[in-house]
Design a binder for these strands. Sequence first.
DNA 1: CTGAAAGCGCTAACAT
DNA 2: ATGTTAGCGCTTTCAG
Lengths: 326, 326
Amino acid sequence: MATKAGVSTATASRALNGKSTVDPILAARVLSAAAELGYQPNGPARNLRRQETAVLALIISDVENPFFTSIARGVEDVAQAVGYSVVLCNADENPDKERRYIDVAIQERVAGVVLSPTGTATNVDALTTRGTPLVAVDRHLPDASADMVLVDTKQAAKEATAHLISQGYDQVGCITGPIGIPTADDRLAGYKDATRAAKRRYSAKFVRRTAYRADGARDATIDLLTQDERPDALLVANSTMAIGVLEALSELDLRLGEDVGVVAFDDAPWAPLVNPPLSVVSQPAYDIGKVAAELLMARIADSTRTFTTTTLRANLITRGSSTRKR
Amino acid sequence: MATKAGVSTATASRALNGKSTVDPILAARVLSAAAELGYQPNGPARNLRRQETAVLALIISDVENPFFTSIARGVEDVAQAVGYSVVLCNADENPDKERRYIDVAIQERVAGVVLSPTGTATNVDALTTRGTPLVAVDRHLPDASADMVLVDTKQAAKEATAHLISQGYDQVGCITGPIGIPTADDRLAGYKDATRAAKRRYSAKFVRRTAYRADGARDATIDLLTQDERPDALLVANSTMAIGVLEALSELDLRLGEDVGVVAFDDAPWAPLVNPPLSVVSQPAYDIGKVAAELLMARIADSTRTFTTTTLRANLITRGSSTRKR
DNA sequence: CTGAAAGCGCTAACAT
DNA sequence: ATGTTAGCGCTTTCAG
């Protein structure tokens, strides 16, 4: 291609990269030759030479969860704006896959990674020892040598629970994720706080922990609601689980809102459509992604920044599922 | 690292890649040295040298649509099984972004790409001229020098429409995607076929075309149902649109199933939860991804294969939203 | 402003 | 079986 334009590879490279130190005439010749040949730079070669890439890895714990895909959009929008590409990797709530994708990210020498950790088993040492810029989202990292973007999910759980109690439900229960996943633990803690603050009885009988999946939540709900002493309201830790909870209610012939009040985390697009509409704790997913990407870009530019933790607020949206008609 | 193990880089390389021609003792020494130093191979260098990568690009037109994320899982599962990584790129129904990601895929010299084209503007010449293995999913490519995995969506639309008619709805309408997107066109065509086959009147008055988004579908539905002559049933082209349609129905105080029968494409997880449950055309999304990845792997192994088109069947699932109670 | 040449980290001939 | 060496395609000194 350089030969076609009659210049050296060095000049061609400079022209292609828009360096100002090139004769405009030569530059034009290079550009047209490149276009004509459908030239596409060899990324691996460039990255090898430059020792850096303009791609970000975004490793999320579940592609099928709208909460995480909204984060993805936030990350993408800011990355695109500054000329970075982002590749999504789906860890699928599976520490092994997560591990593998972290390795891939390192091996491909990505410029930085945004990670929503699958849980306690997450090990980011490989990233930190190499100094790969990292931002954790949604779930905090235990050892914490990274920027983090979180949501005040414990507080939100507390408010949601208090709301249910104030609506006249006598015994609120809680369906949350596995032990060790910070969001699952925090939401339970908030639930517990609110229960005690309202002088209601807290008992493990009213909580169920299961994988962040619809089927698990369905079984847990059936189990919870078929015991002798059963709750008449439920705090549900995410929208995937909410699907299972609603299925269970329908199977048990229990009326949503009336027989069992429900508030679920995450304002899924379908939440207003069920009958009655589902009350939710809306998390600022897009903003989480946006802030995370900004933090990452800042750290790529300056690796000596101190680590920050940004905590965003969630927002309780009350709809029909958490009110009893009188 | 090679020096630490006291061997040449060549031997180290061989050991790391599990070549059999290495003294087991040396190999062990290399491996332990690598582990100790936290050695991670340099991907760009390896890829440059090998002139190939073990990563697949999956460019989908909308990460927030469960249909596409299911495809993603299908692709991932088979890729992982044979040691490939897959990076997801979100074209966001935007031809420019799609274009950019195709360029990225080429520049990074990925082993192959699975693409769900955003529409007619899609140009895969860059891929085909370079001989990058490509499989198109969901929407066929006009010029067709690629394997394709499609769904017989026209036939499915026809069956769904016929079902609505057989349930006693007098005038079925159709909400579909933009002109030029094959799935949108095909679903309309199937609707038209069924309407005519049943000797019902077909009129453009009963169809609305809009972006594959909830808000567009909502507006279109309100528009459609507030005109003088209004349909009493709707075929909806995907689940994102279905959300908008259900919103509109609720705003207009029209009862789902009773006042307006609805069948929508894609069996979203929430479809059974609305009241009455939503009848859907279930597409085998996971299998689409699975077959696409298999095809891609086959083509990577043998680039001389002839191009094939696989058409999978969709499945009508009737629930309450398409039946009138008597 | 341009060209020649070195070298990024790795793997595959080739030689031993 | 192991080491030596060349070279993948690019960018970037360093000379001119």
